[in-house]
Amino acid sequence: MIKVGIVGGTGYTGVELLRLLVLHPEVTLQVITSRADAGTRVDQMFPSLRGLVDLLFVHPDEAHLEQCDAVFFATPNGIAMQQTRALLEAGVRVIDLAADFRLQDIASWEAWYGMTHACPDLVAEAVYGLPEVNREQIKTARLIANPGCYPTAVQLGFFPLLEAGVIEAGSLIADAKSGVSGAGRKAEIPALFAEAGDNFKAYGVAGHRHLPEIKQGLARVSGNGVGLTFVPHLTPLIRGIHATLYGKLTRDVDLQALFEARYADEPFVDVMPAGSHPETRSVRGSNRCRIAVHRPQGGDTVVVLSVIDNLVKGAAGQAVQNLNIMFDFPEAMALNIVPLLP
């Protein structure tokens, strides 16, 4: 058994971590922090956890996180980097679900996130926690940069094509849609039901924080830089991301066979039969990414459809997947969840 702490347990990602970890047979929840709700019972805030979590939220200053074996940061950007060094020195392994350690280019990170990085030397050590490409590095990592939700869906869809060198890397397009929970559990007008319901809109067309993360990951597998147009959209869904990806083929290839071979041994990537159209509801509540690949009219454009639950494979589920790899547990432990339907 390992002792686990969660910093920032009151957001959607934090409660999703709790939902998964309470059923993990190798995890003891040691501490869950919250500045605003310290002293409140966790199951009072989240009645779904009644009978499963018997803890109070603790103020971060009183959490004694150094007594944990692993700590998840389910916090806004800029929090984990303030505490990670001390935890690593205490022998704690850290999984950050925010963006503090995702970008290797510090200047780019500071420009996109509007703050000075507190520990740039640790960024080079951080392992990008996408198991489908970094499983071996994750096994021995002390510090994991858990990928963003859009980057997970987009990268998994493009990887087989770029690795095989069968598309033009300079003209990629990612048209992605997300549910409102991707914005977090906070009071903001765009996330109000009357604003987001019965509506559909693009945002961040001029530039989105996930763009450099996606380009960094795609460039690593392609061996060169990539050109990517990334346009996110907000949909009137609670959960889910649907990424429609476009690329120009450079040679003829059996796309279905390519994708099936690439992900044959991946427990959480499901390549669907030829002609399929995966739906967000088919992954709701699960850690699975479902992918379908198309070649419309047999032309030179490839279209990849990639769907995930933004709170699970796009955040908390992937973080638990990383935990399992780091501590040599079965990778699917606590994650073999059948998606919810309806």
Score class of each variant (00 low, 15 high):
M1I: 07
I6S: 12
I6P: 11
G8S: 09
G9S: 13
T10N: 09
T13V: 14
V15G: 07
E16T: 10
L18S: 04
L18P: 04
L21Q: 08
L23E: 15
E26I: 00
T28K: 15
L29A: 07
L29G: 05
Q30V: 05
V31S: 12
V31M: 12
I32T: 01
S34A: 02
A36T: 13
D43F: 10
Q44T: 15
Q44G: 12
M45H: 14
S48W: 09
R50H: 15
L52G: 12
L52Y: 14
L56K: 11
F57D: 10
F57G: 08
F57Q: 07
V58C: 08
D61N: 15
E66Y: 04
C68G: 13
D69Q: 13
P76N: 06
G78V: 02
I79E: 14
Q82N: 07
Q82D: 09
T84K: 07
T84A: 08
T84Y: 03
R85Y: 06
A86Y: 04
L88M: 08
A90P: 03
G91Y: 10
L97M: 13
R102G: 08
R102Y: 04
Q104N: 13
Q104R: 13
Y113F: 13
H117Q: 06
V123Y: 05
V123S: 02
V123F: 04
E125Q: 14
A126T: 01
G129C: 08
G129I: 03
P131Q: 11
I138A: 06
K139Q: 04
A141T: 00
A141D: 05
R142A: 08
P151N: 12
T152E: 15
L156W: 11
G157I: 02
P160K: 03
P160V: 02
A164F: 01
A169E: 06
G170K: 02
S178A: 15
R185T: 01
A187V: 13
P190I: 10
P190A: 11
L192T: 06
A194N: 03
E195M: 05
A196R: 03
D198H: 02
A202E: 10
H208M: 03
H210D: 15
H210G: 08
L211R: 10
N224Y: 05
V226M: 02
F230M: 10
T235P: 01
P236A: 01
L237C: 05
R239T: 15
R239G: 11
H242K: 11
T244L: 14
G247Y: 02
K248G: 03
L249S: 00
T250R: 07
L255N: 09
A257G: 02
L258V: 01
L258S: 01
Y263R: 04
Y263F: 12
A264Q: 13
A264S: 13
P267G: 14
P267E: 15
V271G: 00
E279P: 00
S282F: 13
G285F: 10
R288G: 06
R290K: 15
I291C: 03
A292F: 02
V293S: 05
P296E: 06
D300F: 05
V303D: 07
V303K: 12
L305F: 01
D309A: 06
N310I: 14
L311A: 10
L311S: 09
A316Y: 02
Q318W: 04
N322Q: 06
N322Y: 06
N324D: 03
I325K: 10
M326Y: 03
D328T: 00
F329R: 02
A334K: 07
I337C: 03
L340G: 06
